[in-house]
Nucleic acid binder design. Structure first.
Length: 494
RNA sequence: GGCCGCGUAGCUCAAUUUGGUAGAGCAGCUGACUCUUAAUCAGCGGGUUGGGGGUUCGAGUCCCUCCGCGGUCACCA
């Protein structure tokens, strides 16, 4: 790293580093002898206070407030658990030590303080500092203490500053962590095994999206970053696992928006001897359980809506949902030409699409999706846009598939998995034809996956949902960037 | 890629409408102050107004252009 160019603040603070070193004091010592976190110190004090005894602590944290009042100074430090007040007093510390604290400590520094706990006149548990030590000098001052950091660009590019100055932001990521743990607990109790499958894949699949391409030098070949975990997880069912899940990043080479980040976290779960109705039960129970554990309630607030996650969730077929909103019955308009005519007849505003299935999907996203505020399963999708799902026994145009929606957000996708290898191959070929016709998002053929199915895969239900969007809902954040620590920022394309 | 908006001190914001010496709070520096909680009080520093170009006697302000960010459309389960 080049020698930093210090601004006025950094220069002033760095002079203190040099002065301390000249006095034989290391401003970045290797360790602390902390005995209590802020929370532990307060708890120990409250307990001792009842018994009439005293508590001696050594605490450590970042200096976040400093109020000088002549021969005394109040300060607050913040650690991972909270804040704690420090009381520096000339009479306690002695002239030299007290002056040194005032001279060498700055907001943002990490400090260690030792002393006995007492209660100030306002009742706040406080450390009466008898000795203190710098643990790490901060050269750059923290943002403004009252407003924190608000500039979104700096908040995302320098998330560490956002986190240190905005406690709400820290809370979001704590909730995110708890959501993940609660999901794992939930699935563990149901006998699911957590697995890890390749991120670098020779053939990508499991979703319709353009991939990121990378190169393996040694093998002299291109590899793809996975767009889904689906095809590898299903191979595990062939191998004999009954219940597996994976939580990990998928990568899709698409645009950025408040709902899309090129890398995002997904859970996929598969249950042998289950079907898509089992996956509905899993989704609604899991989401409600997680909300209860993480938020203490199944009633969440999202962007002004109060939403109850208590099962059972509403279920509606895609046919009925579209009929309700557009008056078109896709079972009657069951060919591309008929559906196109029905759309034209009603002068609906949808983009032109090349096939019946894609036009159904377009009608749905345009007219139904934004209205789905309460948790809703939309079931029975067009076969043609669902190449990995099993057909409905009584209708070859449709598959046993659902997506679920809450707060107008599309959250997850599930189906009764297609396990007929010959039919799967035919579906891949259908995709292949669409690719050749210019659809960059159509599936490539995964021959090894067909080989796996040839060995036999049991009837299976599978589901996937986005962890980022789930976190948006549970923390009431309007943008996916607020729930991803280091989000991709908009890049101007030339 | 289209449209709309934003970019001023370390941070949070004024001044842009109507061109006329760029201000405030916090933070910083100096001083006062032994129970503060955004401590208070007095004083002092701090700016390439995102970069470049243009119009003008004069540009933070108007125009062009480039950069960065947000929203939205397109795209995207």
């Amino acid at each position: 790293m080049a020698w930093p160019e210090f601004n006025e603040y950094q220069h002033t603070r760095y002079q203190k580093v040099l002065e301390l070193r000249a006095q034989g004091i290391e401003p970045y010592p290797p360790r602390t002898s902390r005995t209590h976190t802020s929370r532990e110190a307060i708890a120990a004090f409250e307990h001792a206070d009842e018994e009439g005894s005293t508590v001696h602590v050594t605490v450590a944290g970042r200096l976040v407030a400093w109020r000088e009042m002549g021969k005394i100074t109040f300060a607050h430090i913040e650690d991972g658990e909270g804040r704690l007040q420090l009381f520096f007093q000339l009479n306690t510390l002695g002239e030299e030590n007290y002056r040194a604290a005032r001279k060498y400590l700055d907001l943002g520094d990490f400090v260690e303080a030792t002393g006995e706990m007492f209660r100030t006149r306002t009742g706040e548990p406080t450390v009466r500092v008898t000795s203190w030590r710098l643990l790490a000098k901060a050269l750059t001052p923290p943002p403004e203490k009252w407003h924190g950091l608000t500039d979104v660009e700096q908040r995302y590019r320098q998330r560490y500053v956002d986190l240190m100055s905005n406690p709400d932001v820290r809370r979001v990521f704590v909730v995110r962590s708890k959501i993940l743990r609660a999901i794992r607990d939930f699935l563990d109790k149901r006998g699911y095994v957590e697995v890890e499958t390749p991120i670098l894949q020779p053939v990508y699949g499991g979703a319709e999206a353009r991939p990121f391409i990378t190169h393996h030098n040694w093998a002299k070949r291109d590899l793809y970053l996975r767009i889904a975990t689906e095809l590898y997880l299903k191979r595990l069912l062939v191998g004999g696992f009954e219940r597996v899940y994976e939580i990990g990043k998928d990568f899709r080479n698409e645009g950025i928006s408040t709902k899309h980040n090129p890398e995002f976290t997904v859970i996929e779960a598969y249950q042998a001897y289950g079907d898509y109705t089992d996956m509905m039960e899993l989704a609604e129970t899991c989401w409600a359980t997680v909300a209860e554990e993480v938020l203490g309630t199944t009633a969440i607030t999202f962007q002004g809506h109060t939403i109850d996650l208590t099962p059972p969730w509403r279920r509606i077929t895609m046919r009925d949902a579209i009929l309700e909103r557009t008056g078109i019955d896709i079972e009657q308009a069951n060919t591309f030409e008929a559906l196109r005519a029905a759309v034209a007849e009603r002068a609906l505003h949808v983009d032109p699409k090349p096939t019946w299935g894609k036009l159904v999907d377009e009608l749905f996203s345009e007219y139904v999706e934004p209205t789905l505020i309460e948790p809703t399963f939309v079931v029975d999708y067009p076969r043609e846009i669902s190449p990995l799902a099993k057909q409905k026994p009584n209708n070859p145009n449709l598959v046993e598939r659902f997506e679920f929606f809450i707060g107008g957000l599309e959250l997850g996708n599930a189906f009764t998995e297609l396990n007929d290898p010959v039919e799967q191959l035919e579906r891949f070929r259908e995709q292949q034809r669409q690719r050749e016709a210019g659809d960059e998002e159509a599936h490539p053929v995964d021959e090894d996956f067909i080989n796996a199915l040839m060995y036999g895969m049991p009837p299976t239900g599978g589901i996937g949902w986005g962890i980022d969007r789930m976190t948006m809902l549970y923390t009431d954040r309007p943008s996916i960037r607020e729930v991803i620590l280091f989000p991709q920022l908009r890049e101007r394309r030339s």
